[in-house]
C-alpha cells in the first residue's frame, strides 16, 4: 500500500479523474450523433453537450418555494458521489492509487448513494412526477443492483479479488480465454448498464413525455447550475459503465506502466473501445422500443439470470474439480 503513496501517481490519478469528467459529455454526444445518423438526421455537433453545460452553469438557478435545503444540496452530493465512483475505475492505466482506495463494491455503493439523493431530490418539491420518478427509479435499481453484483461476483470469483485493477490484471495475465462465465457476465452487465444509465428500452433520456419518464421526472424541477450538475453526473455515469465494461472484458491496450507512451496508447485504446460501444448502444436504441414499466422486471430478471448462469458456469465448468 505504502509504495503506492507516490505523489506523481496521485497526480496522474487526479488527472485521470479530470479526464473522466471532461470526456463524459463527449460519449453522450457521440451516442446521440450516431443515433441521429441512423435515423437519417444530421444530429447535433459533438460539442453540443459542452455548450449546454456552459449555458446552464451561467444561468440563474430557480428553486421551487416548496423545496427544502436538501433540494439544493442534492446536485452536489449526486455529482461528487458519481465522480468518486468514477475515480476508482481504471481508465487509461491498470494500476492507479485511486483504484485501491475503493473496490468495485464501494463503487456500486457510491452510485447507490447518488441515486438515493437523486430520488430524494425528486420527492422534495412535492410534485406527482417527482414521486413517480423516484418510485420507479428505486424499483429499477433495486432489481438491477443484484444483477450487477452477481455479474461482478462472477468476475471477482475467478480473479479472487474485488479490486478492479486486480481483476483487469488477472484478465490480462490469463490471455485470450473463452470463458462462458465472462460471456454471461458481459451480457448481464450490458443489460444492467442500459437500465442503470436510463437508456432505451428502460428509460428514454430524450423524453419529456410525462408518463414515461423516470430519470427526467426526478430532475424536472432543476434548473441552472443544479440541472447542469445533474446532467453532468448522468453523463459521467454513462461513461463509467462504458469504461467498466470495455476495460474489464477487453483490457488490451491499457497502460501497464505510468509512462507517457503507454498512457497515450491507453487513451487511444479506450477511445476506440468506447466509440465502438457507443455505436452498439446507438444501434440497439434505434432498433428497440421502450418497454412498459412492468416489463422491466422481466428484463432485469434476465440480467440476473445471466449473472447467475455466469456464476454457475464458472463454478461448474471452469473450476469444477
Amino acid at each position: 500500500m505504502a509504495d503506492l503513496l507516490n505523489p506523481v501517481d496521485w497526480l496522474l490519478a487526479l488527472l485521470q479523474v479530470l479526464l473522466f469528467a471532461l470526456a463524459a459529455p463527449l460519449l453522450a454526444a457521440w451516442v446521440k450523433r450516431i443515433k441521429s445518423r441512423l435515423q437519417n438526421r444530421r444530429g447535433p455537433s459533438l460539442l453540443q453537450p459542452y455548450r449546454d453545460l456552459r449555458k446552464l452553469f451561467r444561468k440563474e438557478a430557480r428553486v421551487a418555494n416548496s423545496a427544502s435545503p436538501l433540494f439544493r444540496a442534492a446536485p452536489y452530493v449526486v455529482f461528487s458521489a458519481t465522480l468518486i465512483a468514477a475515480s476508482t475505475v481504471p481508465l487509461l492505466a491498470v494500476h492507479l492509487p485511486t483504484a485501491i482506495l475503493a473496490d468495485v463494491i464501494v463503487l456500486v455503493g457510491f452510485l447507490a448513494l447518488a441515486r438515493f439523493f437523486l430520488a430524494l431530490a425528486g420527492m422534495d418539491v412535492g410534485s406527482a412526477f417527482g414521486g413517480m420518478g423516484a418510485s420507479r427509479e428505486m424499483l429499477i435499481s433495486a432489481l438491477a443492483e443484484p444483477a450487477m453484483l452477481m455479474a461482478i461476483f462472477t468476475l471477482t470469483m475467478s480473479a479472487h479479488s474485488t479490486n478492479l485493477s486486480s481483476v483487469i490484471q488477472h484478465v490480462l495475465d490469463s490471455g485470450l480465454l473463452l470463458r462462458p462465465s465472462f460471456l454471461f457476465a458481459l451480457l448481464a452487465l450490458l443489460l444492467v448498464a442500459v437500465a442503470e444509465t436510463g437508456r432505451i428500452p428502460i428509460d428514454n433520456p430524450a423524453t419529456h413525455l410525462e408518463l414515461t419518464m423516470v430519470h427526467e421526472a426526478m430532475i424536472l424541477e432543476y434548473s441552472g447550475r443544479h440541472l447542469a450538475l445533474m446532467e453532468w453526473a448522468a453523463q459521467i455515469k454513462l461513461l463509467l459503465y462504458g469504461v467498466l465494461i470495455s476495460n474489464i472484458f477487453l483490457p488490451w491496450g491499457m497502460a501497464q506502466q505510468l509512462e507517457p507512451l503507454p498512457l497515450l496508447i491507453g487513451l487511444a485504446a479506450i477511445a476506440g473501445k468506447l466509440m465502438l460501444l457507443g455505436v452498439v448502444l446507438a444501434v440497439s436504441e434505434t432498433l428497440v422500443a421502450k418497454m412498459r414499466l412492468f416489463r422491466v422486471p422481466a428484463y432485469l430478471n434476465l440480467a440476473f439470470l445471466l449473472g447467475l448462469l455466469g456464476m454457475l458456469s464458472h463454478v461448474i465448468l471452469e473450476v469444477g474439480v
Binding site: S174, G175, L176, L177, L178, R179, P180, S181, L183, F184, L306, L309, S313, L317, E318
Partner: peptide
C-alpha cells in the same frame, strides 16, 4: 481452463449457451 485449447474452451461456451 488455460491448459485446454481454444476448441475445447469453445465446447464449454457452447454448452453454457445451450443451457442459457
Amino acid at each position: 481452463l488455460a491448459q485446454l485449447g481454444l476448441l475445447e474452451q469453445s465446447i464449454f461456451v457452447l454448452v453454457a449457451l445451450a443451457l442459457f
